[in-house]
């Protein structure tokens, strides 16, 4: 469990507070999304989760341990952050070497290292890319590699900072599959975004930040029903939620996952499942 207790933060003494009185609990195995407009403090908030930043006031606990008392190298074993621009984490001449370097850093050697490497390459469909330079990969492939790197040491919490930025439709679908794999392993996934449309894939619990303070906490469904909150905080209400309102008349609901919504529509229109 990651717990924020009355957390206030500012980068320097003269500046304003970037985070204001954050109280938040993230449980094991849940999908949570941190939303907010540009400059609302989303990235600053997640940097507290693995100890990159320490609160100016208040405390952050990861599995009961205060982040002030633990070095980042130790916290990063539990909490992996995949930043918005994955290329900033690459330094090896090939995808294979990139993964090997990470595994070596976490103490794996010899056969154990090779087995784990093959496992990851297979799992994240990186086998064909193993000899490519990470910098030469497409945006979607780089994102997939960065998630593979983050999951290679089996952390309990995976935090994705703006994972859909700059991705085309194919890469977005690819990303969804990757996240679903992470979820299947009962890991906690934190998605930082302002892309509400994408969240229909997971219908997570949402935390909405504005000027460094939490202004809304609840289910994705509850957020969609509060259009006023969405508009006031610089987000865009997804068009699909309009369709959901229509479907709701017959017992559907806002905040359903795409797959559930599709089933209701197929049922109502009498189409075949192949649609």
């Amino acid at each position: 469990m990651i717990e924020f207790r009355n957390v206030w933060f500012k980068y320097d003494e003269e500046g304003d507070f970037i985070l204001r009185n954050i109280n938040l609990t993230i449980k094991r195995g849940e999908v949570i999304s941190i939303l907010g407009d540009n400059g609302s403090g989303k990235t600053t908030l997640i940097k507290h989760m693995n100890g990159l930043l320490k609160p100016t006031k208040g405390d952050v606990y990861v599995d009961g341990e205060n982040t002030r008392d633990k070095p980042i190298s130790e916290l990063s074993r539990k909490v992996a952050i995949v930043f918005q621009y994955p290329e900033k984490m690459f330094f090896s001449p090939s995808v294979e070497e990139e993964l090997k370097a990470t595994l070596k850093n976490f103490g794996l050697e010899g056969e154990e290292l090779n087995n784990r490497l093959e496992e990851i390459l297979e799992e994240f469909r990186l086998v064909d890319l193993r000899d490519r330079t990470p910098f030469s990969l497409s945006g979607g492939e780089q994102r997939r590699l960065s998630i593979a790197i983050a999951l290679s040491w089996d952390p309990d919490y995976v935090i994705l900072d703006e994972p859909t930025t700059g991705l085309d439709g194919y890469s977005r679908r690819d990303l969804t599959k990757t996240i679903e794999k992470v979820l299947a392993k009962n890991k906690t996934v934190v998605i930082v975004t302002h892309d509400l449309e994408y969240l229909f894939e997971f219908a997570p619990r949402v935390i909405l930040l504005s000027r460094g303070a939490i202004v809304f906490q609840g289910s994705f469904k509850e957020l969609l029903e509060n259009e006023d909150v969405i508009m006031r905080n610089g987000l865009e209400s997804p068009k699909i939620s309009m369709l959901m309102k229509v479907v709701r008349r017959d017992g559907g609901g806002c905040g359903m996952r795409y797959s559930e919504l599709l089933s209701v529509i197929i049922e109502r229109l009498g189409c075949s499942e192949d649609v």
Binding site: K47, N50, L52, P71, I72, S73, S76, R77, A80, I81, F83, Y85, K88, M89, F91, T102, N105, F106, I149, A150, W153
Partner: peptide
């Protein structure tokens, strides 16, 4: 700025 971001990314990967 870039140096800070790269350092943060590598620290998050467990590098010291």
């Amino acid at each position: 700025k870039q140096l800070n971001e790269i350092t943060e990314a590598q620290l998050s990967r467990g590098y010291t």
